[in-house]
């Protein structure tokens, strides 16, 4: 396909997406004292951006690069390496279905097919109302409770096709009972 050329040297304004708010920048700065270099705060910074915007937009990557004093390409390198970071808008809730061995033996394929039908979308797509995105992942580390799926950070275990309606209609289907660790969210006081 080398007869086609993509122009990477310019980018349309609307493709840049939203940037970071002042509060998010300040939050990123509070992570600096934890590490020997600013660059090391890359992952927390990207999480903050994704929490705020919903995905890592190009403008947010550029803002982070400016804060961490690295080239913007270095931020893109990290974002595109991890599948947990999104480079385009995603639904409010992301359903991740396991496609690994144990889950598949226990009926993961059927769960995925039923989800696709119920939501009317394929993998890596978002419902028109922006509520759900659907992706698959290699392993969700709950092989003893297959088939399993995650809605945002909440893992649903032993999911059966007939349970799906109940799970999808529950407004709290992504609430985790245990809050996220302090170490991640709250900056250390030095």
């Amino acid at each position: 396909m080398s007869w086609e050329t993509i122009d990477r040297t310019t980018v349309a304004e609307e493709k840049l997406g939203p940037g970071l708010s002042a509060a998010a920048r300040e939050k990123i700065r509070t992570f600096f004292p934890r590490y020997p270099s600013k660059r090391a705060a890359m992952l927390p910074a990207l999480h903050i951006a994704q929490d705020e915007i919903g995905y890592c937009s190009l403008r947010a990557m550029r803002d982070i690069a400016e804060l961490l004093e690295v080239p913007p390409s270095a931020v893109m390198d990290v974002v595109t390496f991890y599948t947990q970071f999104w480079t385009h808008p995603r639904g409010k809730k992301v359903i991740t279905v396991c496609r690994s061995l144990s889950c598949e033996l226990m009926g993961g394929k059927e769960v995925l097919a039923a989800l696709k039908e119920k939501l009317g979308i394929d993998e890596h797509q978002t419902t028109p109302d922006g509520k759900y995105s659907l992706v698959t992942e290699e392993c969700l580390a709950s092989c003893d409770h297959g088939p399993c799926m995650q809605i945002n950070e909440k893992t649903h275990k032993c999911v059966r096709v007939e349970d799906l309606d109940r799970i999808l209609s529950d407004p709290d289907n992504d609430k985790i009972s245990m809050p996220r660790s302090d170490i991640f969210d709250a900056p250390q006081k030095t």
Partner: peptide
């Protein structure tokens, strides 16, 4: 930089 990973790994610039 290198972007993406596995067999989709390639060398790229930041757009723009």
């Amino acid at each position: 930089r290198k972007v993406n990973r596995g067999s989709r790994n390639e060398i790229d610039i930041f757009p723009g």
